[in-house]
Design a binder for these strands. Structure first.
Lengths: 340, 340
DNA sequence: GTGAAAGCGCTAACAT
DNA sequence: ATGTTAGCGCTTTCAC
């Protein structure tokens, strides 16, 4: 292995001082043109790259963002992640990723591992268990240690920090209103994420839309749970009731409901309209394709990364106020909805 | 903001030397029990955490792995990634992720950004463009700079390094043999990844199986392309031919083919058997659910991470030989296959 | 225009 | 048992 080039080595070989080399490479006006040229060319020849760790130690910044995601297999999070990675890279930042796997302990551990100079700030979505338990000490601690956090999607009002969310409540109101306009009279509400803040907000939006339209809420065509097995079981009985619309709050509920309806021989969209929250390519690939509330994952990620970096790069004392940015959803009409 | 605790500060406040504090915290036998206790308790009180950047500079190791993935939205890569992340974390390593987006330039840039002490080694799957162009200089450079690489799935024989792959060729032979046993006589071969090494291997496996069974190869029921639009177009005409089996080399081909068949009113699996390479949850959710060649993404990731870390932690001069580990696939029978 | 020296926070060989 | 010193690779202030 060839030795890695350092300032020291270059200085020795060129018979100049370390600081001359350093300045020459950063194009300082203190250094004469000929010396600069000599140093820069030699450095290129030797393929010199400043040791990032040393630079970080000196500057007390790592230009690295810690991202904590509950589950990378969920296409929504994968999309957000790709947005974060892109925006961060564009601004010269690296991204260290941890997966909390919905566990409070892993979340705490991950933050602990990284809160030692490794990262300058966090972007995260709260783990399911953390939301259930309501333990947010680790977030507050990081913030008081001057490590900024940007939360996205699953947030907590108890923590004072930047946030990026989707207008879950409004999106649901809008989607359900749309179904009502399509002449749906009996819209089932299905969710396997009733433990999450976002799930609750979407359910409230559904209620609001029904109430606004003077439609009474029918609990017998509502499945709210936090467990897919439980959901699948309850789903069996759903089609005993009269329904002409399904509003599903997550991908699992959307797909399983469509699958079950098709099996029962119910025609979509002629007898049944379906709208679901979904982000993968799959809503398009389904037969019939699924009309969705699309959450613009990449935009959420980009917004979060930019908010964090803006704060990191703000001059001391000029940090912006904490803000909550709302990314608008979009109702994507595909084959599963049509006027009844 | 409260000042971050450092050894220096603690030393001053306790009226001992920095090295005493350092040794006490690492539980060195050189230090007396009472002092140790005093220091350790004070450190805990102050919530002291060793500055990771300084430790890295000193030790010339970062305990961080650079992962470069072509596309995190592809569920196969997402699964591999989750395996890497898990194995790395279990062994005390962090993971910095870059997404090459199938671009050679981004791949080169990512490696460049990280090859300066930020990471100890790479785990990567080669970008599409890189495979097409056949430019592997950046990999060789890293290796000669003593930064080990583990490649997975999309590898290159031109680069001498550790590799983790799936037995694509054998898997395809096995799957097609299976279809033949189910009495398929006219098996179509569909691929949108004919530009990738893995795509080619799978296609060769298909040919081998047909040849072994004395079935002649029929180019009119073969769609090999690297472009999904092109594929979708050619797919329209596929069902004009007589086919009773579909072997699809990637997720897009699998799903679009099933969707098209269903639209044509072809009964799966009664008139047509389908097997596809796929990794998402969606193969299960399809109607009928898709029989797949499952690639054990998480295991691939874990194996890659462990190989890399084993090499990183090997004593100088005792590094293991480069090896290529093969993870076995599994034929997952679901509703899209049944004896004709 | 160039160089010497200090220091970022930590470890470890070497005194005392 | 504790402290002193040097050094990881770099930047930057201050002298010359």
């Amino acid at each position: 292995m060839k030795q890695k080039a350092t300032l020291k080595q270059i200085a020795k070989e060129l018979n100049v001082s370390v600081s001359t080399v350093s300045k020459a490479l950063s194009n300082s006006p203190e250094i004469s043109e000929p010396t600069k040229k000599r140093v820069q060319e030699f450095a290129k020849l030797k393929n010199y790259k400043p040791n990032n760790v040393a630079v970080n130690l000196k500057s007390k910044k790592s230009r690295t963002i810690g991202v904590i995601i509950p589950n990378i297999l969920n296409p929504f999070f994968a999309k957000v992640f790709s947005g974060i990675e892109k925006a961060a890279n564009d601004r010269g930042y690296n991204v260290i990723t941890c997966i909390s796997n919905e566990s409070l302990e892993k979340e705490v551990h991950a933050m602990d591992m990284l809160s030692n100079g490794t990262i300058d700030g966090f972007i995260l979505s709260i783990a399911e268990e953390t939301q259930a338990v309501g333990d947010f000490k680790h977030f507050k601690e990081a913030i008081s240690d001057d490590i900024p956090i940007v939360m996205f999607d699953r947030i907590s009002d108890e923590v004072n920090c930047d946030k990026v969310i989707v207008d879950d409540f409004d999106s649901a109101v809008h989607a359900v209103n749309h179904m009502i306009k399509l002449n749906c009279k009996n819209i089932a509400l299905l969710s396997t994420i009733d433990n999450l803040s976002v799930g609750k907000l979407r359910a409230e939006g559904y209620h609001k839309a029904l109430t606004d339209n003077n439609i009474s809420i029918n609990d017998t065509i509502t499945i709210l749970t936090d467990n897919t097995d439980d959901f699948d079981e309850k789903l069996q009985k759903l089609f005993d009731k009269k329904i002409d619309g399904i509003f599903a709050l997550d991908e699992h509920a959307s797909v399983m409901a469509m699958k079950a309806a098709i099996k029962k021989g119910i025609k979509i969209p002629d007898e049944l309209n379906v709208i679901g929250f979904a982000d993968g390519v799959w809503s398009r690939r389904l037969t019939p394709s699924l009309s969705t509330v699309s959450q613009h994952g990449p935009e959420i990620g980009e917004a979060a990364a930019n908010m964090l970096i803006d704060r990191l790069e703000a001059k001391e004392g000029e940090e912006p106020e904490y803000q909550t940015k709302v990314i608008k959803t979009e109702l994507r009409q595909r084959e599963s909805t049509r006027k009844l």
